[in-house]
């Protein structure tokens, strides 16, 4: 398409399209190999489970990125929405016995509604205040779950049918990525980015900033809820400890590492940060320390994350910097990175 919304000089549409094609082709190839591995049982049952978690984390990271990265509203409550989706879906499966796709959509709608109700008042707050308010929301969700009977309180909710297959997780993750890419590359996506860049100017350009902030929040919440539903039907057991503030931070680390405002960055970061701790299982107790150091280090050295606001396709331009447009970019320092 038109090369997306990119901080920094964007490519001429043609070369950007080629680069995006190459990146897309590589992603499809990886996914195809993984699928062959899973269905020929070359990838064992255990690792397939990890791949399901990768898909769930991709959905979580991409959806949080819409709120935190593209719209610039800092939410620390993503685990709360995930919890809403997880419990809602588990209850729908257990008591209503709905088919799984319907349960997933139901979980998404319920989380979106909660996101809407929470977002409407809190999104008037700015920056760090919003962060604390959403953190508070996440904690309230956790305490409510702890105190309700139907959720099993602190003992948790078990006996959830294992309906999240690798295939389903994969399909939902792919759909999520397509949906979010298409949103951010539309006029609606530009409205989100405009709010991040300058809320007052966005408002002066006719953008209903309140509506779009709540919209970003609700869409993000919906997909966090769907991810929670996949999680519940993968683990078969959920309890409030799965959805603490630490979980919100884990998702945040993925978004920040990949780049606030880069969907492909979130995909890469979610994948790496899910598989890497498994590969280094011997030092599992250092995982949160590593996350903490990663957050601090990133902010000090590369606050824009690995990809900044760019997508993988845009990174291929390194090779053509010396082109006629690139020379000017260097001359006027337009890179800004």
């Amino acid at each position: 398409m038109k090369g997306g919304m990119v901080r920094g000089r964007s490519l001429s549409p043609a070369s950007s399209r080629i680069a995006a094609w190459i990146a897309g082709a590589l992603a499809v190839l990886c996914l195809a190999l993984v699928n062959v591995g899973v269905y020929t049982y070359r990838i064992d049952f255990y690792f397939t489970g990890i791949l399901v978690v990768v898909m769930i984390n991709i959905i979580l990271a991409v959806s949080l990125n819409l709120i935190n990265g593209f719209t610039g509203q800092f939410s620390l409550g993503h685990a709360g929405f995930m919890a809403v989706g997880a419990y809602a879906s588990a209850l729908l499966t257990i008591y209503m016995e709905w088919p799984f796709p319907v349960v997933l959509i139901g979980a998404g709608i319920i989380s979106a509604l909660i996101g809407f109700l929470i977002g409407l008042p809190t999104l008037r707050l700015r920056g760090d205040y919003l962060a604390i308010a959403t953190l508070g929301f996440g904690e309230i969700v956790r305490v409510v779950i702890l105190n309700l009977k139907i959720t099993g309180g602190p003992r948790g909710l078990g006996g959830i049918a294992p309906k999240t297959t690798f295939f389903i997780a994969e399909i939902v993750a792919i759909l999520t990525v397509i949906i979010f890419s298409n949103i951010v590359k539309s006029s609606h996506g530009r409205a989100f980015v405009a709010i991040r860049e300058d809320e007052i100017a966005a408002e002066a350009m006719g953008i209903d900033t309140t509506k779009y902030k709540v919209l970003a929040f609700s869409i993000g919440a919906a997909f966090a809820g769907i991810a929670g539903a996949l999680f519940a039907h993968h683990q078969m057991f959920i309890d409030p400890r799965s959805f603490t503030f630490t979980r919100s931070i884990e998702i945040l680390v993925m978004v920040v590492l990949g780049g606030l405002g880069s969907i492909s960055g979130s995909i890469v970061a979610a994948t790496v940060l899910t598989i890497l701790p498994e590969a280094l299982r011997g030092i599992a107790q250092y995982r949160m320390i590593a996350y903490a150091l990663l957050l601090i280090g990133l902010m000090l050295i590369r606050p824009q994350g690995l990809f900044g606001t760019k997508e993988i396709g845009d990174l291929f331009r390194l090779g053509q910097r010396q082109g006629n447009e690139g020379r000017r970019a260097q001359a006027d320092g337009g890179e800004g990175q």
Binding site: S10, I183, S187, A191, V193, M205
Partner: peptide
């Protein structure tokens, strides 16, 4: 001057067409 200063010139203008865009999400 309140431009969207980290965005391209092209995107700065496109954003202002937002409310006239006749398609939904």
């Amino acid at each position: 001057i309140r431009l969207f200063k980290d965005l391209t010139v092209f995107d700065n203008i496109r954003i202002a067409f937002h409310y006239q865009a006749q398609y939904n999400l």
